[in-house]
Design a protein around this nucleic acid. Structure first.
Length: 606
RNA sequence: GGUUCUGUAGCUCAACUGGAUAGAGCAACUGCCUUCUAAGCAGUAGGUUCCAGGUUCGAGUCCUGGCAGAAUCACCA
C-alpha cells in the first residue's frame, strides 16, 4: 500500500516541475496535516516557491490545486488560504483505508531491517532497593526496547548490575557488625534488608566522622575544614574496614566472598519481585563482578595505536582536546581500572555477544560527560559499533524537598509507590462502584493494571531529557491526560465489541461498498489511526516513548469524542453501524499496541 | 569559570522538526447520566513562549548576547 502522503508529494512535485520548469524533488515537499479550523486533510505550503514561480503564494496555490484536482483522483476538493493549499481527500479513500488497516494484522510493526540493537537499562546497585528514579529508567528502557522491536530491529535487553565495590562492602560491613543474623522475611524483602544496612553504615560513619573532626580541630586549629575532613576520613575505622573488606574480596577471601554472595542473592530475589511487578524483563544480565577487570587489554591496544599516551607516573590518558573535551584518565598509575576502563571492556564484550548496529544506554543525565567520552574513545579506537552508541539520557526525578538520597534514606521506594498506587486504584474503583461481577482475582489484577498504567504513563509521557518533579503529597492522577483515561477508553470499546458479537453483528468481513460519505469525526479518527506507523518510526528514531504516549492519548481523546457524538447500535443505516464498530475495533487494537509499546496493559473491563 | 541540558497558562506537559489564531490535562466556573461504561462529553476563563537583538514571506522552534535553574568538569561507580 502506497502511502498517501508520498503519493500526493509526488503529484505535487510533478505539477510544480511542469508549471515552473524547475525540478523539485518529492522529498523536499513538506506536506502537513491540515489544522482543525480549516477544511481539508493535507496542507501544502506554497511560500517557498514564490521565487521559482515568480508568482504570489495564493496564485501558486490556485494553480497547483486546480491541476492536482485534475490529475490525482484521490483529491476531491481544495481551498487556498494565503500561502496554504488545503487538499481534501475523498471520503471513500478513508473508508478503504480503514478496511485496509483492519485487515493488516501487523499494522504498526515496521518491516524488519536486519539491524540489531542492544538496550541496556535498569543497572541497579546491589546495596540499595529500587526507587522512583529507577522506575523512570526501567520504564524508559523497556519501552524503548519495545519501540525498536516494532521498528523492525532485533532487540536484546540487558541489565548491567553493579554488584561490587566499596559501596557494596559498606552494607556488608554494617551487616557483619550489626546484623545479628537477620534474614529476609515476608515483611522485609532482601533488597530492603541490605539497603537498611547501607543506611546504617552511613549513619554510624557520620557519627564517627563528627567525633574525629572535633578531635582533629583541637589538634590542628590552623588547618582548613577541607583538610580536616580528609584527615578524618583517613582515620575512620568504618571506612578503613570497608576498604580492607574490598581488598579481601578482590583477593577472593572465602568468608568475605561468601558474605557477599549471601547478601547479593537476597537482593536479587528482592529485585526479581520488583521487576515482576513493574512488568520489565531482560534477555541478558551482566554483572560488574565479572566485567570490572575488562578493558585493560584494550588500553594496551590503544597505547600501541597511539590513541592513548602514558604520563611519567605510568598512568594512561587520552587527549580529547581536539573533540572539545580535555584529557581523560583511562588507567591508574598502579595499573588498576577506573570506571571508563570497565565500560570500554564491557562495550567490547557486548559487541562480541551481540554484534549490534546500535547500542542504547539508558542512564541518567549526570553521566552525559562519561558517555560522550566513551563514544569518542571507541571511535578513536576504530570500533565499528562506536557510531551506534547512544546515551539515552534522562533527567532526574526530584522531590519537593530536593534530590533523593539513598544514603540518607530519603527516597520514594519503588515497591512502596506501587503498593500505594494499587491501593488508590482499589479505592477509586470502589467509590465508582465498578467492581460488580469481578472475582477477587480479577479485581486484584485490574487494580495492578490501573496502578501501573497510571504510574508508567505519568513517567513516560514527559520528554525523557526533562527532569521532573514528583510530589508524593498529591498522588498520581486517574483523570484527564493519564494512563487510566486511555485504559478506560479501551475498556469502553471492549464493551462495544462484546455487544456487537452478542447481537451477531459481523463487522470483520464487510466491504461497506454502499458507503460514500462519513462524518467529520470519523474521518479524523481514521486519519489519526493511519498515522500510527509513522509515530512508531519517529519514536524509534528519537528514542522517545513520550511520542507514543501522547499519540495514545490523542487517539483516546478523539475516540471519546466520537463515542459521545455518534450513536452506534441505534444507527439505522447498517453500513454506518458496521463502519462505527469497525472503527471502534481498530481504535482498540491500536490503543492496545501503543500502550504495549509503553509496557502498559489494557483491561477488558473497568 | 568551561561544557551540556532545561526555561511555554497558577501547576504538570504538547506543539508533526521553520508554517495559519501556541494546544491538552489538573485546579476554577457553566451545562450534560431514563439512550453503547460520567475514570466521560461539550463549553467559559486563563499566554509578552525568561529577556534583548538578528536571520526571512513567516520564529516557541535557527543564530548571537544576556538572565535563571540543573548536571558535569573525581585516580567514585
Amino acid at each position: 500500500m502506497m502511502n498517501i502522503e508520498e503519493k500526493i508529494g509526488k503529484a505535487i512535485s510533478k505539477v510544480l516541475s511542469e508549471c515552473y520548469g524547475e525540478i523539485i524533488l518529492p522529498s523536499t515537499i513538506s506536506l502537513q496535516p491540515t489544522r482543525k479550523d480549516f477544511e481539508g486533510n493535507y496542507t501544502f505550503v506554497t511560500f517557498p516557491y514564490t521565487k521559482v514561480a515568480r508568482k504570489k503564494p495564493e496564485e501558486i496555490g490556485e494553480e497547483i490545486g486546480k491541476l492536482l484536482l485534475k490529475k490525482e483522483s484521490l483529491i476531491e476538493k481544495y481551498n487556498v488560504v494565503k500561502g496554504f493549499l488545503n487538499l481534501s481527500i475523498s471520503q471513500r479513500y478513508w473508508i478503504d483505508l480503514l478496511l485496509q488497516i483492519n485487515k493488516d494484522k501487523k499494522f504498526g510493526n515496521l518491516e524488519k531491517n536486519n539491524a540489531k540493537v542492544m538496550v541496556e537499562y535498569s543497572s541497579p546497585n546491589t546495596n540499595k532497593p529500587l526507587h522512583l528514579g529507577h522506575l523512570r529508567n526501567n520504564f524508559l528502557g523497556y519501552s524503548v526496547a519495545k519501540i525498536m522491536e516494532a521498528g523492525g530491529y532485533e532487540v536484546m535487553k540487558t541489565n548491567l548490575v553493579n554488584d561490587r565495590g566499596i559501596h557494596i562492602c559498606k552494607s556488608m560491613l554494617a551487616y557483619q557488625k550489626f546484623g545479628n543474623r537477620e534474614i529476609p522475611s515476608a515483611t522485609k524483602k532482601g533488597d530492603k534488608l541490605v539497603g537498611e544496612y547501607y543506611v546504617k553504615f552511613n549513619k554510624e560513619f557520620k557519627v564517627e566522622i563528627a567525633k574525629l573532626i572535633t578531635i582533629l580541630k583541637e589538634k590542628y586549629p590552623e588547618k582548613e575544614e577541607k583538610e580536616i575532613i580528609k584527615l578524618a576520613e583517613q582515620q575512620s575505622n568504618m571506612l578503613n574496614e570497608a576498604k580492607a573488606m574490598l581488598k579481601k574480596w578482590e583477593e577472593g577471601d572465602e568468608e568475605i566472598v561468601g558474605l557477599w554472595e549471601k547478601l547479593n542473592n537476597w537482593v536479587y530475589e528482592g529485585f526479581e519481585q520488583t521487576y515482576k511487578s513493574m512488568g520489565v524483563s531482560f534477555d541478558k544480565i551482566y554483572k560488574e563482578s565479572n566485567t570490572y577487570l575488562l578493558g585493560k587489554d584494550i588500553i594496551e591496544e590503544g597505547l600501541q595505536k597511539g590513541v592513548f599516551f602514558k604520563k611519567q607516573d605510568n598512568s594512561v590518558w587520552i587527549d580529547l582536546s581536539a573533540d572539545g573535551l580535555d584529557e581523560k584518565l583511562v588507567l591508574r598509575a598502579d595499573g588498576t581500572s577506573v570506571y571508563i576502563t570497565q565500560d570500554i571492556g564491557t562495550a567490547e564484550l557486548k559487541f562480541g555477544d551481540f554484534p549490534m548496529q546500535k547500542s542504547v544506554y539508558v542512564v541518567g543525565n549526570e553521566q552525559d560527560y562519561h558517555f560522550k567520552v566513551l563514544k569518542l574513545i571507541m571511535k578513536h579506537l576504530g570500533r565499528p559499533y562506536a557510531k551506534g552508541i547512544y546515551h539515552l539520557s534522562y533527567g532526574m526525578v526530584d522531590l519537593p524537598s530536593g534530590k533523593m538520597k539513598s544514603r540518607e534514606g530519603t527516597v520514594v521506594d519503588a515497591d512502596d509507590l506501587i503498593t500505594e498506587m494499587t491501593e488508590t486504584a482499589s479505592q477509586r474503583t470502589a467509590e465508582l462502584g465498578k467492581i460488580d461481577g469481578f472475582t477477587t482475582e480479577e479485581a486484584k489484577k485490574l487494580y495492578h493494571q490501573l496502578a501501573m498504567g497510571a504510574l508508567k504513563y505519568y513517567l513516560l509521557k514527559v520528554d525523557p531529557k526533562k527532569r521532573m518533579l514528583f510530589n508524593p503529597a498529591d498522588s498520581i492522577d486517574f483523570q484527564g491526560n493519564t494512563g487510566v483515561y486511555i485504559q478506560y477508553n479501551y475498556a469502553k470499546i471492549c464493551a462495544i465489541i462484546r455487544k456487537a458479537i452478542k447481537d451477531g453483528i459481523d463487522y470483520t468481513n464487510v466491504t461497506l461498498s454502499g458507503l460514500t460519505t462519513i462524518e467529520k469525526t470519523e474521518e479524523e479518527l481514521i486519519f489519526l489511526l493511519s498515522q500510527y506507523p509513522s509515530k512508531v518510526k519517529e519514536a524509534g528514531d528519537t528514542y522517545s516513548p513520550a511520542l507514543i504516549a501522547n499519540y495514545a492519548y490523542e487517539l483516546s481523546k478523539l475516540y471519546s469524542k466520537f463515542y459521545a457524538e455518534l450513536p452506534i447500535f441505534s444507527e439505522q443505516q447498517k453500513e454506518k453501524l458496521f463502519l462505527r464498530v469497525l472503527l471502534s475495533a481498530t481504535t482498540a487494537s491500536t490503543i492496545e499496541k501503543a500502550m504495549g509499546l509503553l509496557g502498559i496493559e489494557v483491561p477488558q473491563r473497568m
